[in-house]
Simulated scan of single mutants.
Amino acid sequence: MATVYEIPVTTGGGNQSFEVELGGTAYLLALNWRAARDAGWVLDIATSDGAALVNGIPLLPGIDLLGSYKHLGIGGGGTIYVTTDGDPQAPPMFANLGQTAHLYWVPVE
Rank of each mutant, 00 (worst) to 15 (best):
Met1Ala: 14
Met1Leu: 12
Ala2Arg: 12
Ala2Glu: 12
Ala2Lys: 11
Thr3Gln: 10
Val4Ala: 11
Tyr5Leu: 13
Ile7Gly: 04
Ile7Ala: 06
Pro8Arg: 14
Val9Cys: 07
Val9Ala: 07
Val9Gly: 05
Val9Lys: 02
Thr10Cys: 06
Thr11Ser: 15
Thr11Cys: 06
Gly12Phe: 02
Gly12Thr: 04
Gly14Met: 05
Gly14Glu: 13
Gly14Asp: 08
Asn15Cys: 08
Asn15Val: 04
Asn15Met: 03
Asn15Leu: 02
Asn15Phe: 02
Ser17Asn: 11
Phe18Pro: 05
Glu21Ile: 08
Glu21Val: 13
Gly23Pro: 08
Gly23Asn: 08
Thr25Ile: 15
Thr25Leu: 11
Leu29Asn: 02
Leu29Ala: 03
Leu31Ser: 11
Trp33Phe: 12
Trp33Glu: 07
Arg34Asn: 14
Ala35Cys: 05
Ala36Tyr: 08
Ala36Gly: 14
Asp38Ala: 13
Asp38Arg: 14
Asp38Gln: 11
Gly40Tyr: 09
Trp41Arg: 09
Val42Gly: 06
Leu43Val: 09
Leu43Gln: 07
Asp44Glu: 09
Asp44Leu: 09
Asp44Val: 03
Ile45Ser: 08
Ile45Lys: 09
Ile45Asp: 05
Ser48Pro: 02
Asp49Cys: 08
Ala51Phe: 02
Ala51Gln: 11
Ala52Thr: 11
Leu53Pro: 04
Val54Phe: 00
Val54Met: 00
Gly56Glu: 01
Ile57Ala: 01
Pro58Tyr: 01
Pro58Lys: 03
Leu60Ala: 12
Gly62His: 09
Gly62Val: 09
Ile63Thr: 12
Gly67Met: 00
Gly67Asp: 06
Lys70Thr: 06
Lys70Trp: 00
Lys70Asn: 00
Lys70Gly: 00
His71Lys: 02
Leu72Lys: 10
Gly73Arg: 01
Ile74Pro: 01
Ile74Tyr: 01
Ile74Leu: 01
Ile74Asp: 03
Gly75Ile: 04
Gly76Ile: 03
Gly76Thr: 04
Gly77Asp: 02
Gly78Asn: 03
Ile80Gln: 04
Tyr81Ala: 14
Val82Ser: 10
Val82Trp: 05
Thr83Phe: 08
Thr84Lys: 10
Asp85Pro: 00
Asp85His: 11
Gly86Leu: 14
Pro88Cys: 09
Gln89Thr: 15
Pro91His: 12
Pro92Asp: 10
Met93Arg: 15
Phe94Thr: 12
Phe94Met: 14
Ala95Trp: 12
Leu97Lys: 11
Leu97Pro: 09
Leu97His: 10
Leu97Phe: 07
Leu97Arg: 07
Gly98Ala: 10
Gln99Leu: 14
Thr100Val: 13
Thr100Phe: 08
His102Tyr: 01
His102Gln: 11
Leu103Tyr: 05
Trp105Ile: 01
Val106Thr: 15
Val108Cys: 04
